Simulated assay, not measured.
Amino acid sequence: MTTDIDPALERSATGERMGADLRPGVPIQIRQLSKVYGSFRALDAVDLDVRSGEFLTLLGPSGSGKSTLLMALAGFSRPNSGSIAFDGDEVTRRPPHKRNIGVVFQNYALFPHMNVAANVGYPLRLRRVGRAETADRVRRALDLVQLSSMLERTIDSLSGGQRQRVALARAIVFEPKILLMDEPLSALDKKLREHMQIEIRHLHEKLGVTTIYVTHDQREALTMSDRIAVINQGRIAQIDKPRELYEAPASRFVAEFIGEAVLLPVELREGAAWCAGCRLQGVKIADRSRPLYLVLRPEKLDLLPAATGGDWNRFPGRVREVVYQGDSVLVAIQLEGGTLVNLRKASDRSSLNQLPANGDAVVLGVHLEDTLVVPEDRP
């Protein structure tokens, strides 16, 4: 027995149409991927699994290999060895236009001689989609990025944020399974950039497309991502959810790169861990084969009164500077060993009334639950 099903209802049920609020993305498998430029290894045997519908950020300093990895996924850079598969389909040697991926570049790469509608519809034109369907898809893509009233506008009449939205609409108009984004917000001012971070995150949640996002901005990565892969010298140093990555970095590099931190050398002697002349409490050492460091983050520290209980690791020091920064106050404290450590406090009335003065002797404290020791990076 056969049953006639309305094509529009069938498309809706399978999540094929844009904005279906399902999960049309596909998983990505990367195995032993390497890219060499002369004697420089831009990618060094990278293994990575990206989940279907996930928002994964590649985070790292300039020259770490994050953009090289993205370009290999896009097909614009061919690796020397290794493999890339989309949902089990090998694509390592497949040209970019046959990978069915959307790409948003750092400079947006919009066509200045075309209006907004023509720019967004260009990928459909290449795929020989009919005029009526193209017009419908363009309208819906622009609706998603809140630019439906600007179909006829020229590119040079748009603001930076509007151009970024047009580039996004063009990347999703043909409903790709994978979306790649290479620092798309770097040209925007701080306020607009932070607004667009949330907008892109909401768009991802609506479409469910597998998204790989490249940035060197730690706060941006923490704000937007399901998981973050921290890349250093062509290798993945750690991959984890934002909170786990920040609260439990796996190495010295990750601890220093994610957020603000001062790292103090830790010695193991007398069956205990010592740092800056003080014996550390509540420290678990999993790897004793590499040098160890205590991670001190400004927001995790406090100034302790003499009667404070035993739930803190304590370090005597002296205040060198107090700097008011609007939403917070930075207190620079020199420990007895000479290291300068920053402590950050909220600038509410209570905190401001209790600030120490330059030259005051203080006790810097980090709670046992916030005491974190990390190993040196592996060679």
Rank of each mutant, 00 (worst) to 15 (best):
V214R: 08
L110S: 09
I5W: 07
L203A: 10
D217S: 10
A361E: 14
R11F: 07
E267M: 12
L192Y: 06
L292S: 07
K300M: 11
M114I: 02
E183C: 09
G75Q: 05
L352I: 13
P176T: 07
A187L: 02
M224P: 08
V91A: 00
E244Q: 15
S52H: 04
G75N: 08
G309N: 13
I30A: 01
M114K: 14
P265C: 13
D182Y: 10
S157E: 15
A307I: 02
P7Y: 10
R320I: 11
V230P: 05
G60N: 07
L9E: 15
T3S: 13
L43A: 01
A357F: 12
D327H: 13
V322L: 05
A167M: 06
A248E: 11
S328F: 12
V363D: 11
T3N: 12
H97V: 00
S225P: 03
L58K: 08
A357R: 15
E376I: 00
V374Q: 09
H367Q: 10
L126G: 00
Q106M: 06
R131D: 11
L142F: 09
P379Q: 12
N115M: 03
A141Y: 05
S77C: 11
V319W: 02
V129F: 00
G310Q: 12
E376P: 03
R219G: 04
A132Q: 14
L368N: 09
D226C: 05
G88Q: 03
A8D: 12
A8H: 12
V214P: 06
A237S: 15
L245V: 06
N353V: 08
G60V: 09
V331H: 01
A346W: 08
L180K: 07
N358Y: 00
F257G: 12
I228E: 07
P95D: 03
L110W: 09
A272D: 11
F86P: 02
D217I: 08
A72L: 00
P242H: 11
L69Q: 02
R165N: 04
G271N: 11
D44C: 02
T57I: 11
G15S: 13
R378N: 09
M224V: 15
T339W: 01
G25R: 02
L292A: 07
H195I: 04
E152K: 13
D156T: 14
E299H: 14
V209W: 02
L151S: 09
L340E: 15
A237I: 03
F111P: 03
Q29K: 07
L179I: 06
N80A: 04
N342E: 13
G359R: 09
C278I: 00
R320A: 12
P176D: 04
T154A: 11
P316E: 06
I285A: 05
E256I: 01
V319I: 14
M18C: 01
A273I: 14
L207F: 03
F86W: 04
Q162D: 03
G63L: 12
A117P: 06
A248Q: 15
V323W: 00
I155N: 08
R314V: 14
G102R: 05
L59M: 03
E90H: 00
E205K: 15
L280Y: 13
C275T: 07
S62L: 08
A261P: 02
L330Y: 05
L263C: 12
E299F: 05
E10S: 12
F55H: 07
R31H: 12
E270S: 13
